[in-house]
Amino acid sequence: MQVVLAQPRGFCAGVTRAIEIVERVLERHGAPVYVFHEIVHNQWVVNDLRSRGAVFVDTLAHLPAGSQVVFSAHGVSAAVVAQAQHLGLHSVDATCPLVNKVHQQAQRFVRQGRTLLMIGHAGHEEVVGTMGQAGAPVHLVSQVGDVAALNLPTGKPLAYVTQTTLSLDDTRDIIAALHARYPDIVGPEVDDICYATQNRQVAVRALAAQVDLVLVVGARNSSNSNRLREVAAHDGVPAHLVQDASDIRPEWLRAPALDTLRVGVTAGASTPEVLVQEVVAALRQRHAGPVVQLAGVREDTRFRLPVQLAVPVV
């Protein structure tokens, strides 16, 4: 077996920033620190922070006044922000700056008097947060077929924004369908798909071209990890999402006759490298062989912490 690693893979700058925010709040204020929703979609990360005093909640209603609460990297609605203030909570916003950029674009389109559409998956925290930040009703489009079913008010110009973690191919097809039906619709000046999503999807496509099987390390509820699996499968390679090494099935690893099985490994933007290395170790334990890392984009993006956390406690 040859194991081939995609580059880039794993943590992006927004995830790194969100986790550090929770760590800094714990360092400054001690446990418990409440986190509204999973800080990122990875159970290993969530469990690690929980072991250090983070408490993950899906409602703010019963938190004690004066509590420290961190909003997740996916962003929250304006109503959640207002509720935290009303309850006397001390909130720190860990929303990814690239998700915040989508919020701001949505608000600009609404201020321009446009009817707003959002391309995204219903119920995903980022979509809920963005629609709740727009300041006006938002029409959700999740797939190409939804475009034909739209019943939009007449006489108002249209605009769209997109969830940052979608498949580039799916987004492109939905946007094309929107332009075909509504030729005057406008979107952001640049893609809302974030650099990390784009880089990882380009990398997994390059990986799929060179291997017999792709394993994507990521949580089942991670949108960007699921999209990586879909991109690889779309290119005709068997692809599976694994949360950790225990999810690997022996039947996936049958080598072609008289040949070496080439297994590609990548990871979603919320997946720590430790899980990738555990998967690699498990593969090599079953079938020893070389590990090769493909050349790819080297990411050096860093996002600033919120002002109140920028200086570490001495």
Rank of each mutant, 00 (worst) to 15 (best):
V92Q: 06
E125M: 15
T301V: 11
R52K: 11
E251Q: 11
V274I: 11
R114G: 00
A219G: 10
M118E: 05
S67T: 08
A257K: 15
S222F: 03
W44C: 14
A6W: 06
R24W: 04
V216N: 07
Q133I: 00
P153W: 02
E299A: 11
A209D: 13
V81I: 13
F11C: 03
V70G: 09
V57G: 05
V70M: 01
G120R: 02
V55F: 04
V279Q: 11
A176T: 14
E27I: 10
M131H: 12
A209L: 07
S225W: 00
N226I: 11
L261C: 06
R298I: 14
L168I: 11
P312K: 08
Y195V: 03
E251A: 14
H62S: 14
L207N: 03
E20R: 14
T165G: 08
R200I: 05
V214E: 00
R111F: 07
N47T: 12
A54T: 06
H234Q: 15
A295I: 13
A136L: 04
C96M: 05
E20K: 12
G289V: 12
L116F: 01
G132P: 07
G30I: 05
V92W: 08
F303M: 10
N151C: 12
E251N: 12
D146S: 03
T165C: 06
Y182F: 11
L26H: 01
V127K: 13
V76D: 06
A106F: 02
E20Y: 01
T162P: 09
A176W: 06
V279F: 01
V4R: 10
R298M: 13
V128L: 13
D170M: 03
I21G: 03
